[in-house]
Simulated scan of single mutants.
Amino acid sequence: MGDPKRSNGAGQRADLASLRAQVRAIERGTDAGGKAARCPLGLKSLDQHLGGGLALGRIHEITGETRAEVRDASVFGFAAALLVRLLSAARGGDILWCVRDANMFGGMAYGWGLAGLGLDMDRVLFVEVRDEAERLWAMEEGLRCKGLVGVLGEFGPVRAGEAARVAERRLQLAAETSGVTGFLLRSVTGETAAGAVDSRWSVRAAPSGGDPRPVWSLSLDRLRGGQPGAWKLFWEARDGRFQVWDERARVSHVRPKTRTLAASDAAA
């Protein structure tokens, strides 16, 4: 920083501004260069592609595979897996989940199902509001609360217009200021946020061959400062981590069928 006695006023102001920038970066979970802190997802190849893991204090968008206004369980499942990783890496704090009401096109996230994926439901706060505008407001307020680990909001198809872009920019700014990570969930494929989210994922359910663990075909369509990618992964709730799906993974988990003993076998 130099000797204050030999610094002019401009130099001292520059040093003070640099110090303030470093403090703001620490509060946002970034380094002085603005690089985001990251949460490893537990799979080496995926974490390397992401630059060390999922960026914290940023907004991430997850879209589903449906082509109409239908709720998509794969979106809920993948989001829940990411929340499990966030909570395991955090020293404390909860998740704020801003839900949409159940309607003729589908229901809400099911608590027992989320718990089955390893999500600690005691650390999840569900919020119901009247409409999407209030849901955006609740999500923004949650992102400004440093006591939270993450904020998730369920939304319908993207609405065109400047108002939507401004709302999404406000979410991104709130996340970067507090260091709280945000997620936008949209079930409709191809419908993405107007703003520049940090990452955008497309999630599709994949055949599991009878394996009860969720298997997803993931497409990373956008990554700030990185490249798109694609993986076929499954979620191992017992370990709380993602793993690459292949036939060996299925065979190692599915129990062999037991053979019913015939009368001759029993007598032997």
Rank of each mutant, 00 (worst) to 15 (best):
R213Q: 03
M121W: 07
F155T: 05
T66L: 09
G190M: 08
L16T: 13
L233Y: 06
E162F: 14
R130V: 13
V203N: 06
A263D: 15
A68Q: 11
R159D: 15
P214D: 02
L184M: 07
E140G: 11
K257T: 13
W235G: 03
A80R: 05
L152D: 00
R6Y: 11
I26Y: 12
T258G: 11
V70S: 12
G229P: 03
H253S: 12
G52R: 01
V180R: 05
F242R: 06
M139S: 08
D3S: 09
Y110W: 13
Q22P: 00
L125M: 15
G34D: 01
A109W: 06
A164C: 13
H253V: 11
I26F: 11
G51M: 07
D246W: 06
P228A: 09
E168G: 05
L220W: 03
L83K: 04
S45W: 11
P214E: 03
W201D: 02
G118D: 03
L136K: 03
R255S: 10
A89Q: 12
R100S: 12
A133F: 09
T260S: 14
T258M: 15
R13N: 04
F234N: 02
L86W: 07
L185H: 01
S187D: 15
G34S: 02
S199P: 08
C145R: 08
G226D: 09
A133N: 10
A262E: 14
G2S: 13
S217V: 00
A237T: 08
G111Q: 11
G9F: 12
E154M: 09
S217T: 10
F105A: 15
R248P: 00
R123C: 09
V127P: 02
M121N: 12
G53L: 08
W235S: 04
R67Q: 12
R213Y: 00
P256Y: 05
R165E: 13
D3W: 06
E69A: 15
A89F: 06
A36L: 06
G118Y: 03
M139L: 11
G229A: 14
W112C: 10
V166I: 15
P256T: 04
L119D: 05
L125E: 14
A175Y: 04
L220T: 04
D31C: 02
H253E: 11
L184N: 02
A89N: 12
D211K: 00
Q227V: 14
W137K: 10
R13D: 08
P212A: 03
A237W: 01
A206K: 08
L117F: 06
E176W: 09
G190L: 08
G2L: 10
K232P: 00
A263C: 09
G57A: 05
A102Y: 08
R85P: 06
L261E: 11
L16I: 12
